[in-house]
């Protein structure tokens, strides 16, 4: 029996450690957050490339050799997928975090997202042009 002044006995479920598989949107969120691991991988790969190229043609060929084995290729395919997930989600969330005003009117979110993809395309084209020469 509940005595006078006693608080009612409430039920508080403990959150499961698997809370993020329960819903599609939660799963997508955790995958988005895990993309950060591949951002770190992108840094490591970039540094490896710079280091090898500087050591000479032979070291550069050795790096390409290591990277062309099936495990490395599979890893990089997964990494690229996660990095694109990061790009897509990041671009989509930007207009929410930073509403931009031009000439007194709010820039529509679609325009902000489109501008970011334009920048993405320009940067990508520029980098490929730099490398291919």
């Amino acid at each position: 029996m509940t005595g006078p002044g006693a608080l009612p006995r409430t039920y508080r479920p403990r959150p499961s450690i698997w809370w993020w598989v329960r819903k599609r949107s939660y799963l997508l969120f955790v995958l988005r957050e895990l993309s950060s691991v591949f951002v770190a991988w992108f840094v490591a790969l970039t540094l490896a490339l710079v280091w090898s190229v500087e050591r000479g043609a032979e070291q550069y060929e050795r790096l390409l050799d290591v990277l062309s084995n099936p495990f490395a290729v599979a890893l990089n395919v997964v990494a690229l997928a996660f990095l694109l997930l990061h790009t897509i989600t990041w671009f989509n969330l930007t207009p929410k975090a930073m509403p931009i005003r031009l000439f007194g009117a709010r820039v529509p979110p679609v325009a902000i997202v489109a501008a970011q993809w334009a920048a993405f395309a320009a940067v990508s084209a520029f980098v490929i042009w730099l490398v291919v020469g």
Partner: peptide
């Protein structure tokens, strides 16, 4: 807050708390 964004999805009044 890690910007899950579910608060905005759930909001019945379009408040957009996540934003």
């Amino acid at each position: 807050c890690t910007f899950v964004g579910e608060c905005t999805t759930a909001c019945p009044k379009d408040v957009d708390p996540a934003g």
